[in-house]
Design a protein around this nucleic acid. Sequence first.
DNA 1: GCTAACAAGATTGTTGACAATTTTGTCGCC
DNA 2: GGCGACAAAATTGTCAACAATCTTGTTAGC
Lengths: 216, 216
Amino acid sequence: MPYEDGPISGEQAKLRALAALREAITRGDMAPDQRLVEHELAERFGVTRGGIRAALIDLTAEGLVERIPNRGARVRVVTLEEAVAITECRMVLEGLCAAKAAAQATDEQLAELAAMGEAMAKAVADGEPLTYSALNHELHTYIRDISGQQVAVELLERLNAQLVRHRFQLALRPGRPQKSLSEHLALIEAIRAHDPAAAQEAAHAHLASVIAALRE
Amino acid sequence: MPYEDGPISGEQAKLRALAALREAITRGDMAPDQRLVEHELAERFGVTRGGIRAALIDLTAEGLVERIPNRGARVRVVTLEEAVAITECRMVLEGLCAAKAAAQATDEQLAELAAMGEAMAKAVADGEPLTYSALNHELHTYIRDISGQQVAVELLERLNAQLVRHRFQLALRPGRPQKSLSEHLALIEAIRAHDPAAAQEAAHAHLASVIAALRE
DNA sequence: GCTAACAAGATTGTTGACAATTTTGTCGCC
DNA sequence: GGCGACAAAATTGTCAACAATCTTGTTAGC
């Protein structure tokens, strides 16, 4: 459904364009390495070219888009090697968050974690890898929130956004959810036991396993 | 090619403005929370307002500048709490780099590390905290280079840029260089011994000590 | 058929003027 | 003097036209 009233403008428009573009890229609606022509996007999203341009610059800073002077923007393609490097960084940063979460989680938050663990187990038992993948992501986000480590949270969100394609690919691999589930349950248990060292170790182990799976 | 009287323009200009601004901020030439008026900066650096504007947007993404719509840009002020959170992230990321460096450093690189260690010891013995601080930064950069972990290196550079003021403050504190030196020597030894776990541990210990000093 | 040179088209980059917004200054009033 | 309304100034935000650059297509010459 096209926008009938011509390009909207202003800050609102720019933000909308940014959100829409980010969504489209992380959703995988746009093929990797696809050209992002400013004029086309402006028409598609119903904003001015300036708005799209600003959004592309922001997305470049986030690492989702690659811009070459005078040659336009493309969806950045993350090589396997890069995906591994990114996941290594996730490993230590999520380890930090897990340790802090274990140190300071409230009883209420621990109960919520337990509930999430059960939901994930159910999703695996029911053979629903996509549901499991979504819950997986939710769990990681929730642990980050509990940690209250704002800087780490921001870094992790940036890093995660670049990995969507690889993560999606991983979730559908046979046997992977089972392995992933047990690692997550261990992580949840360590946090519930208020054991920072064990929580950090569990997060490390989980992401080391993800790295191994990526490399396969 | 004659000298231009008016503001220079184009990509070159934008890059120059960005470098100059970043330098000025990290050098501490500009007070924290100082207003950054586009017109003034444009005149000062001899570029167009558009160039300054683009540079400010980039610096905002780097976390050095804060921009509020319709109200301009300011030098971002990093609170103590944020400095601690940033250093916690540095801790785990530098730990990662140290471990990888220990795993794969060449003999040549190990020799260079040893030389740096001696230079640092000399600087402390001679009571030259500023020389020591510079060498300190050089050492961290070198270890990151050895690690080859490009993603971690980029994150660390971003994080470090935000800490200049605090780092500077720390270097001049009495007794601090001595403590820092022994931690660094332990890190160097662990890398020279090709012991990733010990290297990671040494990096953690060092930055945990920095956090404690920050909090004092 | 192949290459080089050139032209046409498509795309991005830049500018300067103008609009919108916020901040500052001034005045009258209670 | 304090306070609110209003006006003026300063500052940032936006746009549309133009310029610069790259890409693609075509032709001439060999």
